[in-house]
């Protein structure tokens, strides 16, 4: 177990190194610098700017300096939001993205597991067909269609919830639902299939024969086994929620890290972009590791070496 975690950490560092290098060179080799404006700035000032943001000197030297700064936890200054460090910008925006992501994660897992189990238990009833049909639609229709449509209906026509923004609980409802929607559906489908399989096993019949109540058998005995495929999907789920949140934050005008991501590409703000990408990748790999560990805790038959 310790060796496994250790190996995964090495792989994390390797992945981060690759991603950082790739981002750095892609953004630096692209034509157009961060200080290009309509009006040309005087060469003297441009030189000073480049020096301030450590963008002067040969490329390989810049790269090594950047890696050195990263090792000290310094993500450098943003070239767009002058004089503000990337650390500071991320410290402000990440909690927002994390709240949204966490809310969507909870909705997706609880909603999906409940719907899937329900559909499996009520197999071949209108509830089952309805839930699975809805799930197929939710999977096929992208977030950026669902989001604006939800705004149209619930914010503009019915005026129940705010159009966008951040800061109040009602403002969280639509973005979280939009982000979670397709994954509720996907998890429900996973859950239904695996629950159906588990319900056919002998130990379920034994439990029922012992006189346990139906709900208790389903939610205590069957769920524990049937949930495994869902657990293994949690890693990819986290990844998809991360990328998905970029779109959802754009739709609902949420001041999270996703907005910075889009802006920093458009403004060629290499360090801000680097910071966002590093955080996203690290989160992703750590979440995957966490999922793998929890998987072994749930299913004792699996041993990681």
């Amino acid at each position: 177990m310790v060796a496994f975690v250790f190996r995964r950490f090495l792989s994390l560092i390797f992945v981060l190194f690759c991603v950082v290098s790739l981002t750095f060179f892609l953004i630096r080799l692209a034509p157009g610098g961060p200080f290009d404006r309509e009006r040309k700035i005087p060469p003297q000032i441009e030189k000073q700017l480049l020096a301030k943001y450590k963008l002067d000197g040969p490329l390989h030297q810049q790269y090594l300096d950047y890696l050195g700064d990263l090792l000290h936890g310094d993500l450098r200054l943003s070239t767009k939001y002058r004089n503000r460090s990337v650390n500071e910008l991320l410290a402000q925006s990440l909690p927002v993205s994390a709240t949204l992501g966490f809310a969507a994660f909870c909705i997706a897992t609880t909603g999906g597991i409940w719907l899937g189990s329900l559909a499996a238990v009520r197999r071949n009833t209108p509830i089952d067909t309805g839930a699975m049909l809805a799930a197929l639609f939710a999977i096929s229709i992208p977030t950026f269609v669902i989001g604006p449509l939800l705004i149209l209906i619930f914010a503009l026509k019915l005026q129940w919830l705010p159009v966008g923004g951040w800061g109040s609980w009602p403002a969280l409802v639509l973005p979280a639902l939009t982000l979670a929607g397709p994954y509720v559906a996907y998890i429900a489908r996973l859950m239904r299939t695996s629950m159906l399989e588990v319900l056919g096993h002998d130990f379920i019949r034994t439990a029922r024969a012992k006189g346990l109540r139906r709900t208790r058998v389903i939610y205590k005995h069957a769920l524990k086994v049937a949930i495994l495929p869902v657990v293994s999907f949690l890693g990819p789920l986290a990844a998809n929620l991360l990328t998905g949140s970029i779109v959802v934050e754009t739709i609902f005008n949420i001041p999270g890290a996703g907005g910075f991501f889009v802006n920093s590409i458009q403004n060629r703000d290499g360090f801000l972009l680097g910071g966002v990408v590093i955080v996203y990748c690290a989160l992703l790999v750590l979440l995957n590791l966490f999922v793998d560990i929890s998987y072994t805790l749930l299913d004792r038959r699996i041993k990681i070496t």
Binding site: S11, F14, V15, C18, V19, L22, T23, L26, I27, L29, A30, P31, G32, A239, L242, T243, I246, F261, I265, Q266, L273, V277, Y280, C281, L284, V285, N288
Partner: peptide, 22 residues
Amino acid sequence: EILYSIPRLILILIFINAFDSH
């Protein structure tokens, strides 16, 4: 596996914008 663990769409975004003018 390593490629799976990278948020690919994020990299592709950077890639496209970096190489468009090239």
